[in-house]
Design a protein around this nucleic acid. Sequence first.
RNA 1: GCGAGAGUGGCGGAACUGGCAGACGCGCGAGACUUAGGAUCUCGUGGGAAACCGUGGGGGUUCAAGUCCCCCCUCUCGCACCA
Length: 878
Amino acid sequence: MSRSYEHTTVEARWQVYWEREGIFRATEDASRPKYYCLEMFPYPSGRIHMGHVRNYAIGDVVARYKRMRGFNVLHPMGWDSFGLPAENAAIERGVHPDVWTHENILYMRSQLCRLGLSYDWTREVATCEPGYYKWNQWFFLKMYEKGLAYRKRSSVNWCPSCETVLANEQVEEGLCWRCDAVVIQKELEQWFFKITDYAEELLRGLTTLTGWPERVLVMQRNWIGKSLGVEVDFPLAEPKPDLPAIRIFTTRQDTIFGATFMSVAPESPLVERLIEGRPQAASVREFVVRVSRQDKAVRTDADREKEGIFTGAYAVNPFTQARIPIWVANFVLYEYGTGAIMAVPAHDQRDFDFAKQYGIPIKLVIQNQAGSLTEDRLDGAYEEQDTAGRLVNSDRFSGLSVPEAKTKIAAFVEEQGLGRRTVNYRLRDWGLSRQRYWGTPIPMIYCRACGVVPVPERDLPVELPKDVPFTGKGSSPLAQVKEFVQAACPKCHGQARRETDTMDTFVDSSWYFLRYCSPQADRQPVDPAASGYWMAVDQYIGGIEHAVLHLLYARFFTKVIRDLGLTKADEPFLNLLTQGMVTKETYRCATHGWLLPSDLLGSEGEGWRCAICQGVAQKGRVEKMSKSKKNVVDPERLIDTFGADTARLFSLFAAPPEKDLEWSDSGVEGAFRFLNRVWRLLGDLAGTLHAERGTSNEREAEPVAPQVLELRRLTHRTIKKVTDDIERDFQFNTAIAALMEFVNGLYKFAAERHADRSGTPAPGEAAAFGEAAEALVLLLAPFAPHVAEELWEVLGRAPSVAQQPWPQYDPALVASERLTIPIQVNGKLRSKVEVPADSTEEHVLAMAKQDAKISEWLQGKPTRKVIYIEKKLVNFVV
RNA sequence: GCGAGAGUGGCGGAACUGGCAGACGCGCGAGACUUAGGAUCUCGUGGGAAACCGUGGGGGUUCAAGUCCCCCCUCUCGCACCA
């Protein structure tokens, strides 16, 4: 064969073959070990981007490799197809979200197929299909029954640009995670999932996730934010019958003797009770209104000034009996703990700042080791939590260390009936109501007579109406659709109103991996038998941006679904690989902003100019590919020019999966060149191999020439290296490097073979070369599957290479016969000697001393010490 | 501020438990084949004339340090009043 490598024909041919033969279809088979390989499903935005290519190339190597290792692999794909962009398309271009979404899915599916990804497409799901979101509604009803879904009026994060509510997880530094608009607070009736019921289990479960990156575990741990402390009642100086005391939460009960005032959150209803009938009432109210109007960005700003106002009321410190003032303070959070705190300025920096500002006394109750702290000369809070500090001014507890005091005071609080030990979490319940159209309708009905009534299960799904006005203004489009809103009450059949909010789209992605196990199940969302076989996901691959949001919600849903008896899995994802971003250099012009590569003139050496204005263009930083920075590369163009195998190979070779991948056009060409090299090598030699195969069944039968043995060693070392690199955290970049070395070695071998072609091949040569060629194709198959299939056929083997077993290496052939031992003198490399691998220490040392360069270095100097590391190195210390 | 990770040739990156720093690729240089080469093949390629010097900087441990310990600098990411 000497036909050139035509990627377009080759790739199309095998994609058709795989599909036609159903090579990647997965069925439950109890006799085989399963492997569930999953990549995060995409939002159908229109076209795939390089981030998808990388994500799915990584996943496909894992799936194909595991298949060749004999696993029954489930490798599904689907569409996270509810979401705002579809609605925006409707508003901006008048295309219905449903049409827009389905067109996008159609196109992107064809793009994924062109990448040659080994999915079982019969299991495809799209979350915007009634057959899928019906089960979102079903889960919602089940959770409502169990009290895990509830409705409450509360102050919520509101994105004025998306015109919808956001969960806490979806607010980043006071900005909307999706559009970066400043999030404001709004009072609304909202549906919540009681994720806090699972806080402890979600936290404990993290310790079992040994296959997750440490930083994701840390992020989740921090997000859940468990703290142990006590709740203590501080009696009011003028108690009211229904309000005798104010309850606080603290983790620093050891400092309770230093509490010189109290602070209450502005939103707390306590405020109104405390100021009743006092002269301070009006100004306090004014303060509360002012603070609660501030938007999230201002309120959560790190160096926001501490502000407060005295309520006029006093409490009594139950430990010191001191009368202490009660303040309202802007930094106290209503949603955390009890919404009120005891303030210990000497040992809490926030309280210290506050006390200094308003002239509140500071009382020292922990002294440092030197005993140098004094109340009047403190320039910051002494926040020692370890054993270095000792309690002072704390009655019977004085002299204790902080940890001792924490335990003893907590016990004392309980003994005296002043309060109790408690646990607090930072995690809040998941607000899931969204005032949008393109999402799952929440299956609830409001009846004037019966109140809130769930839609009966038999009436599911509550389908999204198609005929809806998209104006982009006002409340949810659903609320405008009379036929949708008007509903009969399921209980009394009277006229009632349907809930018009839809669910957060994170609900969709919280259980799709379970749906893949039995995508056609129509009596329940998940078939327990199927999920029993496939769950949990053995390897999950996706971007780090979901470290908290999606991965926390999915863990929560899995536990709820387990408690419903539909799966046995406690955790959805056993191993998690968070792949890095795809980045590229950027260019900027002072007047025209970010520049496309096509708007650049000049070169690296002579400098860049803007093609629009001829002005100087600056080479910017390497940034994540994004349209706004104009540094994107379209995968489709890449596939057209070089083919899917090249696109895959480059994105796997240029960096290890978890690190960022910097785009390089010449790197892509390098990958393409490599595939061409492989193609030519096997093409040119296949003919020779076929010719000689008849006479060369002598593998291991007769003695082989030394260079043939070396070839076999190279083959087996490569098998080992590629296998080890994949097994060791999917180090595909070094695995591919080993394949390149292998190919370089084979070329060299072939060249030498041609060079001294005297007529008769060396003994065992054809067999050794056949073995090498076969191994090469098999090892290449997960990375460049199309080329591998084609070459497998060229080698005279029947398809599909994807179904072949992974090659085995012979340990005896992995070890070299001869070793090159570096020889050092005083730790510096001076020479090398080549010795048989089984040489004794004496022999190696003798060889080393004989070496001309070494004997020169050793001459006239007494050798003080000789370091000999077997098979590794010799070091003479003189 | 707290937490995590990273800093290695002209560039992307190798180096697993301390043992030949720079695998592999890109780029660059030379040669071969060619009407031609931006195709392909072969060879070379950290710096330096050399001794030597080289893994962000400075100390240390060790026969031996990119790797271990201490101090410092820079960058990236996450969290950021959670009592």
